[in-house]
Simulated assay, not measured.
Amino acid sequence: MNKRTRTLIATVTLTGAIAFTGCSNSANEEPASSASQSDNAHAGHGGMDHPMDGGPVPEGMTAATDPEYPVDTEVTLTADHMEGMNGASATVVGAYNTYTYAIDYTPTEGGDPVTDHKWVVQEELEDAGNERLADGTDVKVAADHMEGMNGAIATIAFSTDETVYVVDYEADGMEMTNHKWVVESEMQPDS
């Protein structure tokens, strides 16, 4: 089975599972992801749902001219933003020069605050300008990586100017396409 077919099957399966889960009418039922919520909170994603396809990059992104890992390079991820990500094989689908931020925010729909969410880029922050923003700066997020992120007021925890990448990878039987973002230090050559 080729990669495109596996991606299609995974997407259809996940869509069906989400639709089925959304049909539940019991107010006392706990979300299926709640068990992993505390496990993922340290990784900056707070156990929230992350889309299987990250979609296109924001307008105005500048492609890296000589990235360490060019498009179509096979790499191994060393990041742990998502469950199963650390050690996963990935394919680079984009490399960009920008400032990349870890942020703290409270989702717009309520819920527990998210700390050290990795990552959002300069182009995903409203009125961010072109200069690197200082740690502690409050910003309005224009990214929708996770539910409740778009429109949230966030505080910059820290930042980097490393090349930032969009990758496709598989973890725990699920295929993620256009995952945003992984910085260069969170990748290594595929062995």
Rank of each mutant, 00 (worst) to 15 (best):
A154I: 00
Q122E: 11
G55D: 05
G54S: 05
E124H: 03
A17C: 02
I153M: 05
E30M: 13
P189H: 01
M48T: 14
P51R: 09
P31T: 11
K140V: 15
M176A: 10
D172T: 07
T13S: 06
D161I: 08
F158I: 04
L14C: 02
S159M: 01
N86F: 03
A88H: 00
V12T: 12
T65L: 10
Y96I: 03
G60W: 12
F20W: 06
L133N: 05
D104R: 10
G46R: 07
D172H: 11
D80N: 14
G129E: 09
T5E: 14
A142G: 10
G136V: 03
E109G: 15
G44T: 13
T76M: 02
A102E: 15
P70C: 12
H45T: 15
T13K: 03
A143C: 06
M48Q: 14
A10K: 08
G94C: 07
V183A: 13
S33D: 08
E74Y: 01
Q122W: 02
S185V: 05
D172A: 08
T106F: 06
V12W: 14
E29R: 14
T65G: 09
A90N: 01
G94L: 04
V139T: 04
T115I: 10
D112E: 15
V93N: 06
N150W: 08
Y101A: 05
N40C: 10
G148V: 02
K180Y: 01
D161S: 12
S185D: 11
G110A: 09
D161C: 04
A157D: 11
Q122S: 07
I18M: 05
Y165C: 12
T65A: 12
Y69W: 03
E175Q: 12
E29D: 12
T65R: 11
T160Y: 09
N2G: 07
N40G: 08
E83A: 14
D190P: 00
T78Y: 01
N2M: 02
S159W: 00
T7V: 10
S36F: 11
E30W: 09
T106P: 00
S159T: 03
A88M: 00
A171T: 07
M187A: 10
P31L: 09
A19R: 08
G148M: 01
M149H: 03
M52A: 15
V92Y: 09
I9K: 10
D168V: 01
